[in-house]
Design a protein around this nucleic acid. Structure first.
Lengths: 228, 228
DNA sequence: CGAGGTATTGACGGCTCTCAAGTCTGGTGG
DNA sequence: CCACCAGACTTGAGAGCCGTCAATACCTCG
């Protein structure tokens, strides 16, 4: 199941960029998972796991980015979260995933067997608490995101840009890994509204958009005023 | 801190209804917490805990209902969740609450010391897994709720009614413990839109509204068609 | 019976979606 | 090196849904 969607690094990329990616430290806060898993490469938009599939693996972003999402019966997609280098996703207490996950761009993830973590947790309070804390942190993030979804388009986009800048650890210029459609599905808006809002923020001098994936935060004060 | 907002049952209610409430089995699925805590009564809109306060206690609804919420800087309130009899809230892995909680109506909650649960978890894998599972379940609920927030007003209200009916374990008639303002803040709408949408659903025969807190689900098929 | 909070209803405006056309960009092949 | 193409992004016009403001009705409690 996993192997259908993922390709090994060697099959996917020439050796040179692979080594560079694998060596990427990528903000490893807690290295708890690092010795337990293997690195795997994914192409853009590759499925990582699907809703309803067994929660056999836990993932940590080495490079690139991932998105988890749910789809409504009418086809609309709500992206629950983006995951950037160093962040963990796919961890659930239940046996089945209740979200789907895909690679946003060509990415490398550290893949860890969930059963290994659960076994460790039975012997080690620290690991048990870590699993709980990771899920709790996820809950907190989603609850904060709910607050964003009830606001105006301008506020949602401003919140998104500030969130990305903070999580990517940069001061004023961000390189977005995701498309306008991804942003729209994350913020509960349409791509047209995303585009128009970015143009609007640019015309007021709050940001600059040198290329469509590259955004400069010019006036953080204005953006923060739109933030919670 | 806790005692400021909560009143003991005897101080709050005459003895007769108190005893009845305390004896209420209230759909106790897992009675794990029941022997560890004490019952406490809360008046309508009483604060249970505030954002940023220590997570000293975990709560289980015996009767009544609770809401957890966050407030934006502009004063808007987003209700994260409602908790009905038998459900647990206030459990966090972190040391501080990141939500506030209030009693929706006059309620009785079972109050358990969080430290007792955490201590138990250190010795008992089952308890550790229960705490994790409760938080994971909460996460799942919030993620599902996010899907609701991106839909039309009619769909949001239909989802809300079906959710309440299911959780209250009733077939076709629900007694809402919360006001229109609560529903609005839960669904990201205004009270006027809630009111209009209910009227609209009533005029199409999907529901009936004998009193403003009492709603009869007449045509579940129509409501389900609006559901995810 | 009166009062205050809660809920409903109406009119209007604005924000965002929809549909459609146009523009840019990155990759491919001549 | 340039032309071309497909996909992504931007921009515009119009419509619809929901929020805002305001007035009215209802309901509970004193």
């Amino acid at each position: 199941m996993l192997m259908q969607n993922a390709q090994t690094l060697s099959a996917n990329h020439p050796a040179k960029p692979l080594d560079r990616w694998a060596a990427d430290p990528s903000g490893d806060g807690d290295g708890t998972f690092d010795l337990l898993g293997v690195r795997m490469g994914y192409t853009r938009n590759a499925e990582i796991f699907g809703e309803g599939e067994p929660t056999s693996y836990v993932y940590k972003v080495v490079s690139g980015a991932a998105r988890t999402y749910k789809v409504l019966n009418d086809g609309r997609r709500q992206i629950s979260a983006f995951y950037l280098p160093g962040e963990v996703f796919g961890l659930e207490a239940a046996d089945l995933h209740h979200c789907s996950a895909e690679a946003v761009t060509r990415s490398v993830f550290l893949v860890v067997k969930r059963s290994a973590l659960v076994s460790l947790a039975d012997a080690d309070h620290g690991m048990a608490h870590l699993l709980w804390a990771l899920t709790a942190h996820e809950l907190q993030r989603v609850q904060t995101h709910m607050l964003v979804l009830i606001r105006s388009a301008q506020e949602r986009v401003a919140c998104f840009l500030l969130e990305m800048a903070e999580r990517m650890g940069v001061v004023d210029e961000i390189e977005l890994p995701m498309s306008r459609q991804d942003i729209a599905d994350y913020l509960g808006l349409t791509i047209e509204t995303i585009s128009r809002t970015l143009t609007q923020l640019e015309s007021t001098g709050a940001i600059a958009v040198p290329t469509c994936r590259r955004i400069v935060l010019r006036d953080r004060r204005t953006l923060k005023r739109l933030h919670a």
